[in-house]
């Protein structure tokens, strides 16, 4: 008669212990399995004196679908999707810097009201984890190549732009991999925007292009202003 009374409370305890062990094992597995994040399209508009020109921008399918994938020997597979943030990034960036900014189908198909076309591309992405650097930080580097085309579609100039972002994993508590990596990637996007904003007018071919465009009394409506 005593046996059922003794075993009844033990069964839930065994089940609880078993579940706890399963949860612990799962946590270990998930904790060692890298991370997969997408950069959120939450980016600000630069606050600068606007350049009185209309800038077109062409975002290639390659850029819009850009995903960095990497397998690390000790910590699994890592994925950072940058493409999802590119439209917001360049729309906000160029609308903040220029009187107007419009997406175009290509540098040669910009239309008569567009003074130039920016064609950005991501050339390389690198990242590091706290385990690799023995720090608290996730770090992300993104190297863009910016190409500026004139109103006739001809290449005005191109230049690299390297952006960097980091995020302190300690700000994100337990299971910080995904939010911290995402924050580092977002910080790199903000850095790219900040760098582009302050650098743009100092790039030599851009300076020449700006001087010519701003000196012109008005954009040629036929679109055939420059040879």
């Amino acid at each position: 008669m005593l046996e059922p009374a003794l075993t009844t409370p033990i069964l839930p305890a065994r089940r609880a212990a078993s579940r706890l062990l399963s949860a612990f094992t799962l946590a270990l597995v998930v904790g060692c399995g890298g991370a997969s994040v997408s950069v959120p399209p939450v980016l600000p508009v630069p606050l600068v004196e606007k350049i009185p020109l209309t800038m077109g921008y062409h975002l290639s399918d390659e850029l819009l679908g850009y995903v960095h994938e990497e397998s690390l020997e000790d910590s699994g597979d890592w994925t950072i999707a940058f493409g999802s943030a590119q439209t917001t990034m360049f729309d906000n960036l160029l609308n903040g810097m220029f009187e107007a900014a419009v997406p175009v189908a290509g540098p040669e198909a910009a239309g008569p009201d567009v003074d130039g076309v920016l064609v950005p591309n991501i050339e390389e992405v690198q990242f590091s984890t706290p385990e690799q650097t023995r720090s608290d930080y996730f770090e992300v580097w993104v190297r863009y190549r910016m190409r500026l085309h004139g109103r006739d579609g001809a290449l005005v100039g191109e230049w690299p732009l390297t952006a960097y972002g980091k995020a302190n994993a300690r700000n994100y508590g337990m299971n910080s991999r995904e939010p911290a990596l995402q924050a580092a990637a977002l910080a790199a996007m903000r850095d790219a925007m900040a760098f582009f904003t302050v650098q743009f007018r100092t790039v030599p071919p851009v300076q020449t292009w700006l001087q010519a465009e701003l000196a012109a009394p008005a954009a040629a409506p036929t679109g055939g202003a420059s040879p």
Binding site: P44, V45, P46, L47, A187, R190, D191, A194, F195, V198
Partner: peptide, 11 residues
């Protein structure tokens, strides 16, 4: 965000 990009790490 309101003062972007003047209070970013780079600037």
């Amino acid at each position: 965000d309101a003062m972007f990009p003047w209070f970013e790490p780079r600037t």
